[in-house]
């Protein structure tokens, strides 16, 4: 079961760099503080890019979950 309950889900499966990050950045702007975004992705680069993104934005990178054929990443808006 999911460790985190997302308020929004971004389906970025099949998208490659930089689309997942661009879309994440856009959605994060619309979230309220404390809300959680789930990003579903298949690009191996996203694994590095999201933690690097949150480090700069100040948001919190909660973690990732291996799903069937993709990875879900969870971010918490600061």
């Amino acid at each position: 079961m999911a460790e985190w309950t997302p308020d929004e889900v971004l389906d970025a499966r099949g998208l490659s760099c930089p689309m997942p990050i661009l879309k994440t950045k856009k959605i994060m702007k619309t979230l309220k503080s404390g809300q959680i975004l789930e990003i579903q992705g298949t690009d191996p680069g996203t694994r590095n890019d999201l933690p690097a993104f949150t480090e700069r934005s100040g948001d919190e990178f909660l973690g990732e979950e291996q799903k069937d054929g993709y990875i879900s990443f969870f971010l918490k808006k600061a």
Binding site: D11, A12, R13, G14, L15, M19, L22, K23, K26, T42, D68, G69, Y70
Partner: peptide
């Protein structure tokens, strides 16, 4: 991103 929406491709189940 603002103007075009694209559907994700079908993912093959393992």
């Amino acid at each position: 991103i603002e103007h075009v929406t694209s559907k994700p491709p079908k993912q093959k189940a393992a």
